[in-house]
């Protein structure tokens, strides 16, 4: 059995206990716990996944299979800011491809990659429910609507200094 202090701070562990307590069925807390751990640590390390499985009382494989299934969960480190560009139809016909090219130019990386300074990771996502203001993208939890090639640089700059 892993000790929590190997992976988490006391505060993190106590937050995790609160999340687990919200569910009568402990396994239902897996996804909220993985969201929480990723928020706190940036990604889901093997250690963290092993600990969460033991914390919930399920085989280790359970947290690994969940972590590798969902698009929004990362088992490898990502940049400090996650840039998610919608590439679905409503955004596509309103210039998403140009926006994506602009982002690639500005960041100097391809889709799926992280900038060498580890500030940004660029990914494509499927419909973020902002089709009325296409093209749209999300950076961390912030929605950016009606993005243009010209506004890409300004938007990215507003994140460079953010923690």
């Amino acid at each position: 059995m892993m000790k929590s202090t190997e992976v988490f701070s006391a505060k993190e562990f106590s937050d995790m206990e609160n999340i687990r307590a919200r569910y009568q069925e402990p396994a239902s807390a897996i996804l909220p716990l993985l969201h929480y751990v990723q928020g706190a640590q940036g990604h889901l390390s093997e250690q963290a996944l092993t600990f969460v499985a033991e914390f919930i009382g399920v085989p280790h494989v359970r947290t690994f299979e969940v972590a590798t299934y969902y698009t929004m969960l990362f088992t490898e480190p990502v940049g400090r800011h996650l840039v998610q560009v919608c590439r679905n139809l409503s955004c596509h016909v309103n210039g998403a491809e140009e926006v994506l090219q602009g982002l690639k130019r500005e960041l100097g990386i391809d889709v799926g990659a992280t900038t060498p300074d580890r500030v940004f990771t660029l990914v494509e996502v499927e419909c973020i429910g902002a089709c009325d203001h296409a093209p749209a993208m999300m950076i961390d939890g912030d929605l950016h609507r009606s993005v243009t090639v010209d506004s890409v640089s300004r938007i990215l700059n507003s994140y460079r200094e953010k923690p």
Binding site: R22, L31, P32, Y70, T71, V125
Partner: peptide
């Protein structure tokens, strides 16, 4: 009622 967040799976 409990709010439960998904993680990006259509």
């Amino acid at each position: 009622v409990t709010v439960h967040r998904g993680a990006g799976a259509y």
